[in-house]
Design a protein around this nucleic acid. Structure first.
Lengths: 133, 133
DNA sequence: ATTGACCTTCCAGCTTCTGGAATCTTTATA
DNA sequence: TATAAAGATTCCAGAAGCTGGAAGGTCAAT
């Protein structure tokens, strides 16, 4: 099938498939006589794997490692799990960071009356000393 | 003071101060005869404002708007509050997205025994149909 | 005079695509 | 058969927000 079909079946856009090829995440596709890329079911499966992994927030680099592990019949599941756990830790870190931000923001907005008067605790605190969120 | 001092006092690195100037977030600094940028307490205050805003996750573009509001004595606090509330909504959206990711990831890793055997539900599910996190 | 800490500019790279231009191929229709 | 639309190709640029590094000028102290 052509790249458009592969895109539809995998959830990865044609543009992005070409991009993944260009950075070496996926191997170069074979070509038709006229130069169109050709894809098979196996390729679509790989693209779907990538799509799912990206949806779970794995970096493209991590996805590369996951693909290697996936293709390697002799991998230890511990290696996969370690990668996933480390990613979970990273996600947790981000959540915590965002949660702190939101708490501070909520605190600030609650103290701002939000009418047509100019005085605003939000701006005052942003200009002050003590914001570390 | 020179840019290094301004950086130390504001928490914004010299490199980043120059960057902010280059994109117009802050006005061009005045210069000494030899070309060094000069900063005063007011400038440091502005940089600190920016630093705090960035720490709270506001985009540089939003920070530009906040700076305008801050400098405009006639602004309505409602405008500031609206910006902040909209940002909170965005932060909440991101938190929710990350939480979904983490839940799926946690689910996956729990089902992976994580030893030296090769079979791994994480990879199997990534290759499957049903991941939407 | 020299050292070292600053400062300057400019260019490149990070991450992950996405949009767009110019051009070719394939397919369908009039 | 002519032609038009859909889909493919390559390449360049831009998005956000810095950060690193090179090559070089300046300032203060020794």
């Amino acid at each position: 099938m052509n790249i458009g079909q592969a895109a539809n079946h995998s959830g990865v856009s044609a543009k992005t498939i070409r991009y993944y090829e260009s950075i070496g995440l996926i191997p170069e596709a074979s070509r038709t006589e006229s130069g169109y890329r050709r894809y098979g079911d196996k390729d679509v499966e790989t693209l779907r794997f990538i799509h799912h992994s990206r949806n779970l927030g794995f970096s493209v680099k991590d996805v590369g490692m996951l693909l290697d592990l996936w293709r390697n019949q002799k991998r230890a599941s511990a290696d996969v799990k370690a990668l996933a756990l480390s990613h979970i830790a990273e996600v947790d870190r981000k959540i915590e960071e965002l949660r702190k931000m939101r708490d501070t923001l909520t605190h600030l907005t609650q103290r701002c009356h939000g009418d047509d008067r100019p005085d605003c605790p939000i701006l005052e605190e942003l200009a002050g000393e003590t914001i570390d969120a």
